[in-house]
């Protein structure tokens, strides 16, 4: 299996392959032999009850958490052991569950930092901003609807605006694969639906893995849904199939029953 993956050709449609990942927190298996694949330019929604291991999976893909076993492949390259910033430079960027914008920088500087193509440290001095990067930042400001907030400090934004800014930053890196961990947390229905549109507009150019709990949002996004439970793969299918799946219903129901008890 690994040899076949390593020999991936450009015709290989998969941008991401997660192969038998296990993450062990002092004996507790937050992820247990989990595998999945994602095609270029496609959308995937990852759902699962609280503590299913969704965020931990993102952490493992971007190198924040190291897997006890298993591999992560990006475009046919094994990135499992690379340092975080190298993984990002290969083309993965992630939005954190709690907004990770940089509060004492302006909205524009947040995006400009993300959009900088050359991230080697010795090129980071000087004042000049690359013209193409500036254009890119303007485009993204328009896409996330924060044009008139460009000079505001990111720390002063409303919660929803912070979420959009961080999505914008993730996009600005030009990464081919975007991991969005609960991008609509704390948003109202209007904001949520704007976010769904924004994410859909990214597809094709970017593959996007979205984690969310809000089933209305998931429906609006469409696309394939993967269900995770207790660190394991549970089901995969369309929104419709997942919604009507008895096993999925059982894990969600089981949880809410436990919580009520």
């Amino acid at each position: 299996m690994n040899a076949a993956l390593a020999n991936a050709t450009p015709a290989d449609p998969f941008i991401l392959k997660v192969d038998g990942i296990t993450v062990d927190f002092d004996g507790f298996k937050a992820i247990d032999n989990f595998s999945m694949t994602l095609e270029r330019g496609q959308l995937r929604v990852l759902i699962g009850p609280n503590g299913a291991g969704k965020s931990t999976l993102c952490d493992t893909i971007i190198g924040r958490v190291r897997a006890a076993s298993g591999h992560v492949w990006l475009n046919g390259e094994d990135i499992t052991a690379l340092p975080e910033f190298e993984i990002v430079r290969r083309g993965i960027c992630r939005k954190f569950q709690t907004p990770g914008v940089l509060p004492s920088l302006t909205v524009r500087d947040n995006l400009a930092l993300a959009a900088r193509r050359d991230r080697r440290w010795w090129t980071g001095f000087g004042h000049a901003v690359d013209a193409t990067e500036r254009v890119r930042v303007d485009e993204i400001l328009a896409a996330i609807g924060l044009e008139d907030r460009a000079t505001t400090l990111a720390g002063l934004l409303a919660h929803g605006e912070k979420q959009w800014l961080e999505i914008g930053m993730v996009v600005a890196t030009g990464a081919e694969l975007l991991l969005l961990d609960e991008p609509t947390a704390g948003m109202g229905p209007n904001e949520t639906s704007r976010t769904a549109k924004l994410i859909k507009s990214l597809l094709g150019k970017h593959a996007v893995l979205v984690i969310d709990h809000d089933m209305k949002f998931v429906e609006e996004l469409g696309g394939k849904v993967t269900v995770m439970h207790q660190g394991k793969f549970l089901k995969q299918g369309t929104v419709e199939q997942i919604r009507n799946d008895p096993d999925v219903a059982a894990v969600y129901l089981g949880r809410s029953e436990r919580e009520e008890a």
């Binding site: 971007i62 960027c93 992630r94 000087g126 004042h127 890196t173």
Partner: peptide, 23 residues
């Protein structure tokens, strides 16, 4: 300079900066 911006960014959220691809 851009270096100054990066320093402030690192002060605010070193992880965020790292996961934007900066060492």
């Amino acid at each position: 300079s851009r270096y100054g911006i990066l320093l402030r960014a690192t002060r605010d959220g070193e992880n965020r900066v790292r996961f934007l691809g900066y060492n």
